[in-house]
Nucleic acid binder design. Sequence first.
RNA 1: GCCAGGGUGGCGGAAUUGGUAGACGCAGUGGACUCAAAAUCCACCGGUGGCAACACUGUGGGGGUUCGACUCCCCCCCCUGGUACCA
Length: 814
Amino acid sequence: MADRYPFSKIESKWQKHWADNKTFKAIDNLKDKPKYYILDMFPYPSGSGLHVGHPEGYTATDIVARYKRMRGFNVLHPMGWDAFGLPAEQYAIETGIAPSIKTVENIATFKRQIQSLGFSYDWDREINTTDEAYYKWTQWIFLQLYNKGLAYQSEVAVNWCPALGTVLANEEVINGKSERGGHPVVRKPMRQWMLKITAYADRLLEDLEGLDWSESIKDMQRNWIGKSEGAEVNFRIADQDLSLDVFTTRPDTLFGATYMVLAPEHPYLEKITTPDYVAQVNAYRVLAERKSDLDRTDLAKGKTGVFTGAYAINPVNDTLIPIWVSDYVLMSYGTGAIMAVPAHDTRDYEFATAFDLPIQEVVSGGDITKEAFTQIEDGLMINSSTKDGQFSINGMKPSKAIQVTIDWLEESGKGKRAINYKLRDWLFSRQRYWGEPIPVLHDGTSTIPLSDSDLPLTLPVLDRIKPSGTGESPLANAKEWLQVVDPSSGKVYTRETNTMPQWAGSCWYYLRFIDPDNHERAWDLEKEKYWMPVDLYIGGAEHAVLHLLYARFWHKVLYDLGYVSTKEPFQKLVNQGMILGMDGEKMSKSRGNVINPDEVVKQYGADTMRLYEMFMGPLERSKPWNTSGIEGVYRFLNRLWRHFVKDDGGLIALSDEEPDAETMTMMHASIKKVQSDLDNLAFNTAISQLMVFSNHLRELSEVPRQALETLVMLLNPFAPHISEELWALMGNETTLAYHVWPEYDEKMLVRDTITMAVQVNGKVRAQLEVEVDAEKEHVLAMAHEHVSVKQHMEGKTIVKEIVVPNRIVNIVVR
RNA sequence: GCCAGGGUGGCGGAAUUGGUAGACGCAGUGGACUCAAAAUCCACCGGUGGCAACACUGUGGGGGUUCGACUCCCCCCCCUGGUACCA
């Protein structure tokens, strides 16, 4: 590669220039410019360093940030580190190296790699979730939640591995064995912290409406929240002074309820099971409990269950229906009990068929001898009236019958309208060392939150991090840290050994970026008002549900407390697609298809890397890496350099004449195209336009200064180093970063003549060069003259002639 | 199963409100330069037929609407992501 342009010299020069001059420092509360807050999902600094997927999103946000600055915005574009997490802890257990030390190393690597790409972050705002000065405020937010009654403790089963003496995350358990060592894992109930996210379910759902997010991500969140409306119906137990509530979305099918099912964990089972059935019910419960230890997917294979010997009374027709127990009913949803309507529910149908239970049709329109009829739209109610005829929904559409039945249930005191959510409360504690300590004390009977002045509660330095053996986190080994003696009363308290999950730090980092050095409070309210909401948030789709839902939840709590001014944190969200390996597969070490960004930068430079990642295809789509594809954009930059820079390093002579008409049109068209593509994050087509424009300029014998300046300005967001260098070579003394974006003139886009296609029966037969807005008659006359048009019309009659001005002519003949 | 997104040359991908399918780039072929190669530059480049002009055909498959469909409607197939007995 003899003539390649000196990218490494140029890139290090400008990176140093930007850093020395703090070119990208964001100014708080600036009034004379509109603000624009553009955020990346900050990375977990793993030991393996950056992979090419990271810079895809970062390049996209950087391009927008640089573009917005040129458009006159005050841009906040920060970066930080989500550095708590399991890998560092595992590494510590294996090697004895403290997570804090390893984390610092990893961050240094990530930072060096990110900086080598020339991103325009305001590094003065860098934050790190493992920093005491940061997690002090994570703990403070936890206390806000606690004081608001949104944090509580509960016994929840965890994956306990006796051999390792530790609790495992779900992803560390494979087929009931520990991922490391293959030891047996059992479910063990432990005291856990929960956050009451369910209290915000409705608002998390409703407020999605106003957000500029892709419909698919909104849908994923909606499905996760899983709101369903229906009724709670009360069933009395025959011969006992007990009753059971069930939740159903189909109260219209109440007359078709032929049995009832309880979840194996349902507390009523002990009360209602008749003596004859106790043995089999207990056996089933044990079986079900063990089953949940196995892979859950096995459960779907077929329905199992046993009869309890008890009967319930169907409140609409007083029919006695048997009560069964089966694990297809989940204790964690609804009331843990269902009314089964086999004729109109696929699962109930399967169960009834397996155990020979009666199937009663109450909605006509299907064939219940074959399968459950679940269509709610096309069908009419049948067999649905009380014995005395006082209440009947026969002949109604199910949708109507649902409402009528609920009204009747409420009037007769047999049930009520009800709403259920799939969303569960958030299991917030982890039995880990490397996380934010939960700032509470225990005295054996109650839990006492720390006061704000006791924060941060820092992690104790341990000689060696090892499992406690009890299932508690390694913090249980830190005896001195664990015990707190009240100096006045002498009373002894114990610290909480659970820590927060990795989600905690990332739930509010976007707020800390606003005011990262504030020691008095988490952030300043004025600055928050100025910068929020985040205008554009870009990151991977893997966080589409949990991170975004948790962060939105915290944000709403903070909103209720008056600490933030917007209901939602992230106004516009875009998920970048995955970059696949050359083989079209997900990049992974085991496949050996990982591309190292350091290598790419070394060989081609940061500008080429940035340009290529954006040129590959639409941001949101997954696309495979192609090493020879990168050569293409590299050649583009090389050609640009070689054509305009002489061997001695000076710029070629530019013409100060007005560009010719064609160049002028193309220049304005390019501004328009690049600008609208940037507004739509369509980087690939914008780059294509830059190539077209630059190819044109290379064909000119004399290059007009104005045209080259425009090209360099348009290129700047994408390839800022080479752009700044060319800009400086053109004699400009100030940075291009804040230079005003060129304006296009719509008038310049209008050309005198235009090429129109002429079709005969929909097939293109000729091209006409006509004046813009030429008369229809004139165009048709020209078309008729054309040799090949004539040929295809010969001997036929004209049926119809269509002229779309400036576009197309179609002559229909027969 | 359900929800969402997608299927266009050898490859990545372009195509305003339906209006010349394949922009831009890669790979490939031919040529220039070179002792030679690399790099660079020029030309060609969906398929079939033809020396060529040109003709036919072509956007996952089938049908429809229209003067005209990658684009709109119906049915089907395949791929990716999410979710999974949520009553």
